[in-house]
């Protein structure tokens, strides 16, 4: 921990000019290379995609996609959320996720969801802390990692207007 020192964690948007920062992060955080659509979606999501800076060093990111549901309402899909290994445990992931939850709240978006590999217990318990629940299991979601199954993890905001399927 910063041990009493004032360390600033700040968030910044993703633009054409700093897109490479997100790419760099993803290249070390995740075992896959994301394609152009991922980055186009991230840019299009505007405020929902953020880079986290620790002492002015870019160390983490959350990248979302805004999806239109049947009936016109929209929901947020978290494509990736990650923090560089040495900087974990400093509340950076929390800050990023809270940002997206608060933003969704402000914009009256009722649903945030994501996919998690079924054995990723740390991640599942992390999301549960923020009010996410497992809403579905998809078999053979992944093609080249084991286990290939994933959970759909969802948080409903506001609650009353949402009908669970």
């Amino acid at each position: 921990m910063g041990a009493g020192r004032a360390v600033s964690i700040s968030l910044d948007g993703v633009r054409d000019k700093n897109l490479m920062q997100l790419k760099k992060l993803n290249s070390v955080l995740f075992p896959v290379r994301y394609n152009d659509k991922y980055y186009a979606d991230a840019l299009a999501s505007g405020e929902f995609t953020k880079l986290a800076y620790y002492n002015d060093i870019c160390v983490g990111s959350i990248a979302c996609r805004i999806e239109k549901k049947e009936g016109g309402s929209i929901r947020v899909y978290i494509m990736t959320l990650g923090v560089l290994a040495p900087y974990r445990g400093l509340g950076i992931g929390t800050k990023l996720l809270n940002h997206v939850i608060e933003l969704s709240h402000k914009q009256n978006i009722g649903e945030i969801y994501l996919h998690v590999q079924t054995n990723n217990e740390d991640a599942i318990s992390f999301y549960k802390k923020f009010g996410f629940e497992i809403t579905e299991t998809i078999k053979n979601y992944y093609t080249n990692i084991t286990p290939p199954d994933c959970y759909v993890v969802t948080k409903y905001i506001g609650g009353e207007s949402q009908s669970k399927k």
Binding site: T80, G82, N120, D122, F126, I145
Partner: peptide, 13 residues
């Protein structure tokens, strides 16, 4: 494209 949350694996909470 594959979707993963590998980055969260070591996240101590």
């Amino acid at each position: 494209v594959e979707k993963l949350e590998g980055g969260m694996k070591n996240l101590a909470i």
